[in-house]
Nucleic acid binder design. Structure first.
Lengths: 101, 101
DNA sequence: CCAATACTGAAGTCGTAACTTCACTATTGG
DNA sequence: CCAATAGTGAAGTTACGACTTCAGTATTGG
């Protein structure tokens, strides 16, 4: 679970579609697959990636796998982002942007 | 300039290294290339991608191209992220996480 | 003025990521 | 109990992305 994997995972539109579906509540794999125009296998592969980087958790009950959002990955991203912004926000605020050159 | 491109751009470690360098201030292309173990051409290609998605801006003065952070792309990412979090944060807070199933 | 610097453009290589198919296992509703 | 459902595993295809090389154009310091 690192920032590279989180960003890479979310960089794929299909995976982001999965995450956005899960934003509204837990879903099964085949439920997730429905709106996407790909095979169940492909969705399962995406889920593995999303799980590995901490964006999604799943649990199997019976023959269906239940998927839900995992805040951990999003927190990692949020922290990285606000750190980056902290680096330059103050400097850019000074309008001294041009002076730095 | 869309969220897919921003996330995809930042998903690459080399590009993120470039962004992080620029976090501390403007840099030329060859200056950016120094710590990275790749050719100048490769860096220039990464910069094109970073520019296209609104994470970096550049301007040429003389024979050197000056690169700096562009907040626009980061804002796009920040907005997407906080929107996602707004989708599930309240629901997960209710501890009713399990009830949703 | 010209050698070194700073970059650009085009084209090619190579690995990997996103899919597919197919064959299979486990669960469950009627 | 067995057909339909839900998912898994392995293997193959294909496109694309991150690089390289090489040949070129501007710019500039000495």
């Amino acid at each position: 679970m690192n920032i590279t994997n989180v960003l890479h995972a979310l960089g794929d539109p299909t995976r982001r579609a999965i995450v956005e579906q899960l934003g509204t509540g837990p879903r099964s794999v085949s439920h997730l697959a429905e709106p996407l125009n790909i095979t169940l296998t492909a969705v399962a592969q995406h889920l593995q990636i999303l799980q590995a980087c901490g964006l999604v958790t799943t649990s199997k009950s019976g023959r269906t796998r239940n998927c839900r959002v995992n805040p951990a990955g999003f927190l990692l991203l949020g922290n990285w982002l606000s750190y980056q912004q902290s680096l330059w926000s103050r400097r850019l605020d000074r309008l001294g942007d041009i002076l730095d050159e």
